[in-house]
Amino acid sequence: MGNIKLGLNLEFARYENGSFDWAMDQAAEIGYKYVEPMVHWGRELLSAAGYFHSRSMLDDPLILRNAAEDRGLSISSLSSHAPLAKPEVAVEYFRQAIRYAAEAGSPMIMVDDGPTPSWTTEEENYTLMRYTLKEAALVAEPRGIKIAIETHGPYTATPERLDRIMNLVDSPALTINLDTGNSYLSENDPHEWLEAIIGQVTHLHAKDIALDDAKRLRGKVRGMLGCACGEGVIDWKRIVDTLAAADHDVVLSVECGTLDAAKKSYTHLSALIEAVGQ
């Protein structure tokens, strides 16, 4: 039996106009042991001014590592999304993110299918995504870094389409981050989906969708920040039971829209994890 590691994606800071350090402080104060920071290329004014939580990959990665360690936190993944079917952007972005992750102490990076070129066919997009993932895997494998493909866009919107992406490249570096909220919004049953692919899942975005949002937006959008876990449509006991039965560790990383939701999610999920003996 593997361990369920409860973490917090720092996206909640976006609606609080919070900085990276503020978000890390809040995660530690609430009681989370794992965090999922965002990284970006170049320089970005809002982050530099303290109104956004992302860190530039031009900064020393030890800043991020030390920020986690000083607060008793571990990094579960780096949120480093770039469009898989646009290798002119994604290949170098992922290469840098993987090297950055290795120094920052993150075991994986988070990616998704993202927007595709406006002029390519579906088959061409799969070829482009294969190229991107292969180039990323060549950098990730020798460093022991995982590439977690998140359920987020049209090419990861169903179990069949995600499976096709996972089979584009034969690499031990490829793994899955199932986003429960995004999966639900794409008109799937995330509980059944997780149960079917648990062997490939090492990271899970614990995202709940409020009932009103579910009624309005399911089938119309594929992603949004969630409400507090336990206040929406997801059966978290079933999710936790599935993770507890896995033969490997999985990070359950809360992705919600506010600090209050992060606190409520911690309370709700901690009780369920404790109930399964972890």
Results as ranks from 00 to 15, higher is better:
121 T>R: 05
122 E>I: 11
123 E>G: 00
123 E>M: 03
124 E>P: 06
125 N>M: 04
126 Y>K: 04
129 M>Y: 08
129 M>Q: 03
129 M>S: 12
129 M>D: 14
131 Y>G: 00
135 E>Q: 15
140 A>M: 07
140 A>F: 09
141 E>F: 03
147 I>E: 04
149 I>K: 03
153 G>S: 15
154 P>W: 00
155 Y>C: 04
156 T>W: 07
157 A>N: 13
158 T>V: 08
160 E>P: 08
161 R>N: 07
161 R>Q: 12
162 L>R: 04
164 R>Q: 12
164 R>K: 15
168 L>F: 13
168 L>R: 04
171 S>G: 06
171 S>V: 01
174 L>A: 00
174 L>M: 07
180 T>K: 04
183 S>R: 03
183 S>Q: 04
184 Y>T: 08
184 Y>D: 13
196 A>T: 10
198 I>M: 05
200 Q>P: 00
204 L>Y: 05
205 H>R: 07
205 H>Y: 10
206 A>G: 12
211 L>T: 14
212 D>C: 03
215 K>T: 11
216 R>E: 13
217 L>C: 07
220 K>M: 13
222 R>H: 14
223 G>Y: 12
226 G>Q: 09
226 G>F: 10
228 A>P: 05
228 A>K: 14
231 E>N: 12
232 G>T: 11
233 V>L: 11
234 I>V: 12
238 R>D: 13
246 A>W: 09
246 A>S: 15
248 H>E: 05
258 T>K: 11
258 T>Q: 07
263 K>D: 01
266 Y>H: 15
266 Y>T: 01
267 T>V: 13
267 T>S: 04
